[in-house]
Design a protein around this nucleic acid. Structure first.
Length: 162
DNA sequence: GAGTCATTTCCAC
DNA sequence: GTGGAAATGACTC
């Protein structure tokens, strides 16, 4: 059983946790530390809360929640999923900070349908590092797992709009 | 405005 | 296995 270093960041009312391996690659993240640990265990990892690892990533995450512009897409992550899901996630990572696109636009990029895109995004195990909160509906914010409220907060954080 | 179909995955039967 | 539903949206009547 492989060990995974888990960092938990609690700041500005957010509670965010991520797990990384010895190489510093992010394996999973979640807005609920318990959910993250469960995810890692289901994947055959042994989560170990140890903030001595991944300090640079935690610093970036903390800055991000304080409203600073941080390039999270240069952090290495492990994308595990179907070909289609990975394609959608890669496109999602290309969305710049503070910008949003619709499910329809993203669907066009991968030659698919908005519905399928939403499904792929809901299977995203690495929120924030894959900025799925920047993908919104054309007529409404769309959805978010586990809670749409988090998505709204993140967009407010990036856009600075009330 | 309401109904229908497209595309991919998950869940319950 | 199969059928319905889900982070939607575009098209038709």
């Amino acid at each position: 059983m492989k060990q995974v270093f888990v960092n938990i960041v609690t700041i500005q009312g957010f509670s965010f946790a991520f797990g990384l391996n010895e190489e510093g690659i992010v394996l999973a993240s979640s807005f609920n530390p318990e959910t993250l640990k469960r995810l890692l265990k289901e994947d055959g990892y042994e989560p170990m809360v140890d903030s001595s690892q991944g300090r640079d990533i935690r610093t970036m995450v903390e800055k991000y929640f304080k409203g600073e512009k941080v390039i999270l897409e240069r952090i290495p992550v492990l994308m595990k999923g179907t070909d289609f899901q990975i394609k959608v996630w890669e496109q999602t990572r290309k969305i710049p900070y503070g910008k949003t696109i619709t499910y329809g636009e993203l669907a066009k990029k991968v030659n698919s349908s908005p519905r399928a895109v939403g499904m792929a995004l809901s299977r995203n195990r690495i929120p924030l590092f894959i900025p799925c909160h920047r993908v919104i509906g054309k007529k409404g914010i769309g959805g978010f797992t586990p809670d749409v409220k988090i998505k709204r907060d993140l967009l407010k954080l990036e856009g600075g709009k009330p």
